[in-house]
Write a protein that binds this DNA or RNA. Structure first.
Lengths: 222, 222
DNA sequence: CATTGAATGTACGGGTTCGTCCATTATGTA
DNA sequence: TACATAATGGACGAACCCGTACATTCAATG
């Protein structure tokens, strides 16, 4: 038993001596952890399960992230950063306000729809009463961008008399987010109860149209 | 130490012999469990913690509900039943379609806003991929009612030429739910990021007006 | 009032899960 | 090359947590 262990010592080429690669190790852990936390929640996720699917060992999780909570926070920060990076890339200055707003809504819709992990992580953090997010100041900064974008659009829309002026950017953002987020976050219960598949392409398109029409229509009401 | 234990044997009047009351025991467990599951989620909830806060012992949880999962399912069913019972009581036949719809939206808004536990339980069940809800056929039946109510309103609205006819009741319901639900479910993350208190009365009223105007406006678009 | 099943309480065991201790190897630097 | 520090692995322990075996009491019924 133990003799066989002592035998394999740099014997085959495949069992090469280890290579230190901190960045890759961290990124690897983070990727696996994102899946695990998104799938099972904070309390449901298992540190051992994450470690197993990793190229490295559990020891590294504690070495780099301090523990389960630290890892969870890192996952959450990265998820927000990735999503908002996409939104920030929007170039809307040349479009008329209605078209620009439609573009923002389209972007949010597609983001939530294609980043299920992000939606689930945010949901989980809300179950956790946002306690971890409160410590992550970086997340707040990242999100100010989307508000600025909407604010600029509203400004231009008001200037040309298209939009009403009693709605704040943050409220408009909430409305858009609510629709796009709910479709993904509550997919399971809503789908099971009403026997509809919210991810089906046809309904997907319909909903995107609905949301845009509703928000834009609201802003144009006098 | 142990002598004192043997001493208290039907000594004081307050330590009366036990009284069997199955209904009360079940209801008691259910109430405590609702709080625990809503607070910590399915995997985060602790059976021992529930038992401790109960008038009875852990043994009774397994006696009446089979186990943690059975208890969770019972909690979920009761939560849905309670909410939809309120909605079903609406009397809308005499109102004009727009007013009736406004009444439905108002009801949904108030329900989600005042039943935080319900919102959290639904959220948790979605994190759990709706696997438990799929087994609870009762929940589906209960929810058909709200769709029927909306359908009737849409019918009348179309008949008098007020509403467009290309929106299904279930989509309208989703739109209403999405907004009302998100306000409560994502209160923590959204509030922390944008520094707004979504439960503050002023914003609450504003949001109620917004969602009603948006949905009704959408239905009136040609 | 005797009996029987329903209802309840206590104590505990087996498995799981987080975090850490100790040892070892890699890599940059003097 | 020697050394210091960073990076990694394996194994283990202590706490936690779910579920159950066993014992006991209540209440309905003949």
């Amino acid at each position: 038993m133990s003799s066989s262990t002592s035998l394999r010592k740099r014997s085959s080429a495949s069992e090469r001596s280890r290579t230190n690669d901190p960045d890759r190790t961290k990124a690897d852990i983070l990727a696996v952890a994102t899946e695990e936390f998104a799938a099972y929640g904070l309390s449901g996720a298992r540190v051992d399960a994450i470690a197993e699917r990793t190229r490295t060992s559990k020891r590294m999780i504690y070495y780099y992230f301090g523990g389960k909570d630290g890892l969870y926070l890192a996952v959450l920060e990265k998820a927000y950063a990735d999503i908002r990076a996409i939104e920030s890339a929007l170039e809307l200055d040349l479009l008329d306000p209605v078209e620009a707003l439609r573009r923002v809504i389209d972007q949010t819709f597609e983001n939530d729809d294609s980043h299920t992990d992000f939606v689930r992580l945010v949901t989980i953090e809300n179950i956790n009463q946002g306690k971890h997010l409160a410590e992550a100041s970086s997340i707040r900064e990242i999100n100010l961008r989307i508000i600025q974008i909407i604010e600029a659009i509203l400004e231009r829309g008001r200037a040309s008399g298209l939009f009403r002026s009693d709605l704040e950017p943050v409220d408009v953002h909430m409305m858009i987010s609510a629709f796009c987020f709910f479709r993904v976050a509550n997919r399971h219960t809503f789908g099971a109860i009403h026997r509809v598949d919210l991810s089906e392409p046809g309904r997907r398109q319909k909903h995107k149209q609905m949301i845009a029409d509703a928000v834009i229509g609201l802003l144009q009401q006098k």
